[in-house]
């Protein structure tokens, strides 16, 4: 079963896995794809933007087969349990967000379970789509530098000489720089 296999890859079965699996299945269906994970033809048509890095994200990646390294999975650090599924062939795209109400509604669909975690896990399996998710038809213009395929653009940071791929460089005070040199890094080099 898809959920069990996804949970195995993720490391545990949890409510987030149920949300992610159902969200991914719904997203693919909405944009006209059946099983991109197992179809080379379909996976090449699919891009998914996820807006959170939690359990559901792994489930979405597992079910759809999209991967960060293949550039078919995009991570936006918005902290929102939502993902957008895009069919590159038809431009059809849907954004699906998990409803906050579904957290409390889970009790109605698993009334015999007292443990909150288990209750959500089972409740999310039973809950109707329209109570669990908000679905929006959307348009996403994916910039050329974010598309899968070979590297199209390269620049060299004039400060640290790092090669910056895919138009991630910035133009600051007349110099082409990597983001770390221009804006500061997330790390501090130790002596």
């Amino acid at each position: 079963m898809l959920l069990e296999r996804s949970a195995r890859v993720h490391g545990h079965l949890c409510p987030g896995q149920v949300v992610g699996v159902r969200m991914a299945m719904l997203g693919c269906k909405q944009i006209g794809l059946n099983d991109p994970r197992n179809s080379l033809e379909e996976i090449k048509k699919l891009i998914v933007y996820v807006e959170i890095d939690r359990c559901a994200t792994d489930a979405i990646a597992y079910v759809t087969g999209v991967k960060l390294g293949r550039r078919s999975l995009k991570f936006l650090d918005n902290g929102i349990m939502a993902a957008t599924f895009i069919n590159l062939e038809t431009d059809k795209a849907v954004r699906i967000a998990s409803t906050e109400a579904s957290r409390d509604l889970a009790a109605q669909y698993a009334p015999d379970i007292l443990d909150k975690h288990q209750q959500q896990l089972e409740g999310y399996k039973q809950m109707p789509i329209d109570e669990m998710f908000v679905i929006q038809s959307v348009e996403v213009e994916i910039p050329i530098h974010d598309m899968p395929g070979p590297t199209r653009f390269k620049a060299v940071c004039e400060q640290c000489q790092a090669v910056v791929r895919d138009k991630k460089e910035v133009f600051q005070n007349g110099r082409i720089l990597c983001r770390t040199c221009a804006l500061g890094g997330y790390y501090r080099v130790l002596k």
């Binding site: 050329i144 138009k167 910035v170 133009f171 082409i176």
Partner: peptide, 25 residues
């Protein structure tokens, strides 16, 4: 578009009606 777009400028992956719009990155 690739020739015109310098740093901080990008464009969509699919031309529409033969055109591409260059946009701020």
């Amino acid at each position: 578009a690739a020739a015109l777009a310098g740093p901080g400028v990008t464009f969509g992956h699919t031309p529409r009606e033969g055109k591409l719009q260059l946009k701020a990155a």
